[in-house]
Design a protein around this nucleic acid. Sequence first.
RNA 1: GGUCCCGUGGCCGAGUGAUCAGGCAGAGCUCUGCAAAAGCUCGUACAGCGGUUUGAAUCCGCUCGGGACCUCCA
Length: 500
Amino acid sequence: MSTLKIHNSYSRQKETFEPITPGYVGMYVCGPTVSGESHLGHARPYITFDVVFRYLQHLGYKVRYVRNITDAGHFEEEGREAEDKISSKAVLEKLEPMELVQKYTNLFHWAMNLFNTIPPSIEPTATGHIVEQIEMIKKIMADGYAYEKNGSIYFDVKKYAAGHDYGKLSGRKIEDLLEATRELEGQEEKRDAADFALWKAAPAKHIMRWNSPWGEGFPGWHIECSAMATKYLGTRFDIHGGGMDLQFPHHESEIAQSTICNGSAPVKYWMHNNMITINGRKMGKSYNNVIKLTELFSGDHPLLTQAYHPMVVRFFILQSHYRSTLDFSNEALQASEKGLKRLWDAYENLQRLRDRSSELQETAADPELDERLRKLMTEFDTFMNDDFNTAKVLANMFELVPVINSLKDKTIALTGISRATFDLLQQQFYTYLETILGLTSVSAADNEKLKNVMQLLIEIRKEARSRKDFVTSDKIRNQLATIGILLKDEKDGNISWSVE
RNA sequence: GGUCCCGUGGCCGAGUGAUCAGGCAGAGCUCUGCAAAAGCUCGUACAGCGGUUUGAAUCCGCUCGGGACCUCCA
């Protein structure tokens, strides 16, 4: 089997994945800032890295997956009016800051659950690690790479850059960064424009504040990830993930802080997912083009003609490669909805074929077909190993769909393929669809009583049809259709049904 | 202004030197009491121009268009 290759943002190329400690993987992913509702754009990294998490486990690694909750509310970093997003919003909503944080954390977890993402092994909060952050800042100061000004602490980027390659991750030149092309307020405390805050003194009206050796204040945005990653994954860990927009300054700063504090670069493989765009433009608050997850699930948005099941969104995201931009539209989502249904129907047909497994032979009557199927399935692994190419895995699955449906319709005899290939089909579809890609059924029909009622109606309809009483049979089918239940007369005389 | 990325058939989207991506939509056919589903067949796409090469959507150059980061951002 081929080995896993990961595109490392740091080296800008695919590298063979070799964990620092054989058999174990430490992975850190930047989590959400819970000052507001999550939107479609937020779904991408968490679904992407959920698949990474699942695949690494599938490969047999023991993975510790850490994803933080940013609940500390920072300044508009180095900017404008000193404003704490979380506390100012809390005043508007007349909530305690932590009440607001809790509300959006709950909402985030609710959505992640609907997406069928596996919860991280550890989900630390920034406010729960103030002590660790302060300790880290103290160490950086002791090493002489940070300085205090009016109760705030800044990281000395120029000094760091003299001995380290600051800017390598984000492809920036330190000279350009030091040039200070922009005039922003609140910069006068910093020695260089490129410096970033490790700790900020809290203005009087700032609600979230903690005691520190430098007075009351709150941590800078970047330090929380460094502190929590170090605490739970050690000074050097395997994978750090996040959105591309975090590459600079967030991840660049993380590298600098951790390198000074821990004496080594923190991360072996940096992974960045690309953005979801809408009409070609990044989805984001500042662009005013976000579609919240609640709106997506309810269909309550001007750009949407209908509600979309969370699995459709997950499937939509997995149909593209994580490093490409993904353009959202109502039309694209509808296409995904139909595609997912077709794929899942075939998967269910495949499972039902087990009832006919006695027909199988050890050797395939159609070796060419048999070989083709095996190749398509072997490639699942090849594609995933090539930097998690879920799009190609799904494409191959779709190539198998007509074959599965033909086996079911008996257009292709089960003897055409070998028993081993049949078993492999069963196994690979289950493993990939459910275990690795994390897809689930979108059907709402998992109800015993409904199933029994449907069985009854199907019996009555069968009887009606057998005596050519099409008025009755059509009535049953049409009435059910208006309720949203579709009956399908199969070729073999069976009747299947599905809830829309 | 600086750095970087992208431009694939009606839509979404893989692919990065020669071979079929795939999904959705559309057309035709088969099956069927009808319908739905399913199956089969069909589009000869790679922004434009020039170059390298036996051969380029894929490499190089230029032009046009779009975007990201440089400020909170997934």
